[in-house]
Each structure stands twice: as C-alpha cells, then as structure tokens.
Amino acid sequence: MRTRRHSLALLALPDDGLTRRLYALLFEPYPGVRRLFAADVRPQAAMLRTAMQATLEHLGDRDWLSTALGALGAQHAAWGVTEPMYDAFEECMLAAMCELTGEGWTPALAEDWSATFGDVRDLMLAGAARVPPGDGPRA
C-alpha cells in the first residue's frame, strides 16, 4: 500500500499526463474501445483522474467504494463497456504507469496496483450486473 501511495504523484502530472497516456496506449491494441469516447479525450482523462483520486482517498471505506464504484459500473455498462474492456484498461494503465515511473516501477508496485484495479473492477462489475438488458451503449 505504501508503494502505491508513493506512485500517486503520477496523478499530479500536468495535463492529466497519466490518464491521457492510458488512452493513447489503449486505443491502438483495442480499437473497438475507441467508439466509446469522444474525439477529444481530454475531458475524459480529467474525469478519470478525479475518479482515481477519489477512489484512492476512500480505499478504507468499503461502503463508499461499493456505492460509488457500483454506480460507475452501472453507468459504464449502459455505455457498452464489457468485462474484457476492464482487463484492457488495467493492462494499458499499468503500462502507462510503468512508462511514466521509469526505474521507480517495481514488480511489487505493479502487483499492488493490479490488485487495486482488480478490486475496483469487481465492484464496478457488480454494479454493471444491475443494469437491465437492453440498456445498451450511449448514442
């Protein structure tokens, strides 16, 4: 946990550097995901950064995490986000973090973040399961 908190400086990069880099890495190997985003991903990158900060600030508050991430998962399901897309997100976010951290990126840090992303994914998918069938992707 301490190693993960140390790497939070990534969220403070100018111009949402971490989250914008994530999208650059995500769209190339997973072009099907691109349709879920506006042409300009800067607003989305800023929202993701804010969501990550809020989630990390509430890591010890299981009720907040369940409620907030469940609602976020339901929203993402309505937009057409599928379970495999969560794995693609994690893969590309870890790659962006590794790239931007450089030599400070360690196997322990990667494992710590992967576990965090797994917990977030599980809570979001629990919320996604509550979305009625047919509430498909946003227009």
Rank of each mutant, 00 (worst) to 15 (best):
R2P: 00
R4G: 01
R5L: 07
R5F: 08
R5W: 04
H6K: 12
H6Y: 12
H6M: 15
S7H: 00
L8C: 07
A9G: 13
A9I: 13
L13E: 00
P14W: 03
G17D: 10
L18V: 10
L18W: 03
R21P: 01
R21Y: 01
Y23N: 11
L26T: 12
F27P: 03
E28K: 08
E28T: 11
E28F: 04
P31G: 11
P31T: 10
G32F: 05
G32R: 13
V33E: 00
V33Y: 05
V33M: 08
L36R: 03
F37E: 09
F37S: 11
F37C: 08
A38T: 07
A38V: 11
D40L: 07
R42P: 01
R42C: 05
P43K: 06
A45V: 13
A46V: 03
M47Y: 02
L48E: 01
L48Q: 09
L48A: 02
R49T: 13
T50R: 12
A51E: 06
T55N: 07
T55K: 04
E57M: 06
H58M: 10
L59Q: 05
D63L: 13
D63Q: 14
D63N: 03
W64Y: 14
W64I: 06
W64S: 09
L65I: 07
S66Y: 01
A68D: 02
A68V: 08
L69F: 08
G70H: 04
A71Y: 04
L72T: 14
A74D: 06
A74S: 15
Q75C: 09
Q75N: 09
A77H: 04
W79T: 07
W79C: 14
G80T: 01
V81H: 04
V81R: 02
P84Y: 10
M85F: 06
D87W: 00
D87L: 10
F89D: 00
M93P: 02
L94K: 08
L94D: 06
L94A: 07
A96F: 04
A96Q: 11
M97Y: 02
C98L: 12
C98D: 15
C98T: 15
G102L: 15
E103N: 15
G104C: 10
G104V: 15
G104K: 07
G104N: 09
W105Y: 12
T106M: 13
T106A: 12
T106G: 13
L109N: 05
L109K: 04
A110N: 04
D112N: 10
D112Q: 11
D112S: 13
D112I: 06
S114G: 14
A115D: 00
T116P: 05
V120H: 01
D122K: 08
L123D: 00
L123P: 03
M124T: 05
A129S: 14
R130N: 06
R130Y: 04
V131P: 00
P133Q: 14
G134W: 11
G136T: 13
G136V: 10
P137A: 15
R138C: 09
